[in-house]
């Protein structure tokens, strides 16, 4: 069974099993509006997870991206309100660039000063969040102030259905954005030398240097992309919920890292894929969503996420050890 050798196949199989089980417990799971809602909740976490995937592949870890995302969305919307700008593309470019700039700081410390990524990103994340709240502001920007252009953009649906009771629901077009980002990251990882250098660094940084990779470029690409994706996802999130909250995304890093590890990425670097990450994100979102449907307390949801991190990490470690043996 060569196909079962692939981590993605195993994850897909587990995912399907979980879906069947959840469907048996709660048949409403298979309702189209629930599935559409599920897909919608995948978009923001998924885009962030793709950034975290790059960092994990390179052998690092990133806990700063929620702060970067919050900063990017809040600064961008503040800027829009100050200038009265009403476009869509411009703000997303700005949010992406803000995230990218923060990512460059991570890259600088990780590469130039050879610091441990966990410490670097703990520090930068905390600083960015602190500056945002202390210097820029703490007040939320509500629906009445949010730029309408962004809200209209995020409201776009691919298909619209009508419930028997007359209410409407649809599949958000943002899933296309997610898909496009995923495809780009996949192409980057699979078909560019930079992408392969990320795997190489995560496998053995010293060997990567000896072979002749430019690790500075690699690290810049990894952390800048992670930051950029976080910034982009931050603004997208804000547009989708019609709210700009500088305290948003607190604690999200654990969910996202859990999703990426669940998708088969090694916490020690060098292994993981875009497809696996998409599946891992779907699984995590689905489990959390089902817990909400089953009215499980949010504190217990934290327990479940913690268990997922531990179990998924143990599973990948076990897999890697078996391969190395």
């Amino acid at each position: 069974m060569a196909i079962l050798q692939r981590s993605e196949a195993v994850i897909a199989l587990i995912l399907l099993t979980a879906m069947v089980v959840i469907g048996l417990i709660n048949p409403a799971f298979w309702n189209l509006d629930n599935l559409f809602g599920l897909v919608k909740s995948n978009v923001v976490i998924g885009i962030m997870a793709l950034g975290v995937l790059l960092v994990l592949l390179s052998g690092g870890i990133d806990v700063s991206f929620p702060a970067f995302a919050a900063a990017a969305l809040y600064l961008t919307i503040k800027a829009m309100l100050a200038t009265g700008y009403q476009g869509v593309v411009g703000p997303f470019v700005l949010a992406t660039l803000i995230g990218l700039a923060f990512g460059a700081i991570n890259a600088l410390f990780v590469h130039r000063f050879k610091m441990i990524p966990l410490i670097v990103t703990l520090g930068t994340g905390s600083m960015v969040r602190g500056f945002l709240l202390g210097v820029v502001g703490t007040s939320m920007i509500n629906i009445n102030m949010m730029p309408p252009a962004l809200i209209d953009f995020a409201k776009t649906d691919l298909v619209t259905m009508t419930q028997p009771d007359g209410s409407q629901y649809g599949l958000t077009a943002m899933v296309l954005v997610y898909g496009a980002v995923a495809l780009l990251i996949h192409l980057l990882l699979r078909y560019t030398i930079i992408g392969r250098s990320i795997y190489a660094v995560g496998g053995d940084a010293e060997a990567a240097r000896r072979v002749g990779f430019n690790l500075r470029t690699t690290m810049l690409v990894v952390y800048c992309t992670a930051g950029a994706l976080a910034g982009f996802a931050g603004l997208l999130h804000s547009s989708m919920i019609w709210l700009a909250n500088p305290r948003d995304f607190v604690g999200l890093e654990l969910d996202v890292i859990a999703a990426v590890v669940l998708g088969g990425a090694s916490i020690f670097g060098g292994r993981g894929s875009v497809l696996g990450t998409i599946l891992g994100v779907f699984m995590l979102v689905m489990v959390k969503n089902s817990l909400i449907i089953m009215k499980v307390d949010t504190t217990w949801q934290r327990v479940v996420v913690g268990v997922i991190v531990i179990v998924a990490t143990a599973a990948t470690v076990w897999r890697d050890r078996k391969r190395r043996a």
Binding site: Y199, G202, D204, A208, V211, S266, G269
Partner: peptide
């Protein structure tokens, strides 16, 4: 100085690339 997480083929071809 090989990459344990990459395939034989890729390990061989990386230098040339």
């Amino acid at each position: 100085s090989l990459f344990g997480n990459l395939t034989v083929a890729e390990n061989l071809a990386l230098n040339t690339a």
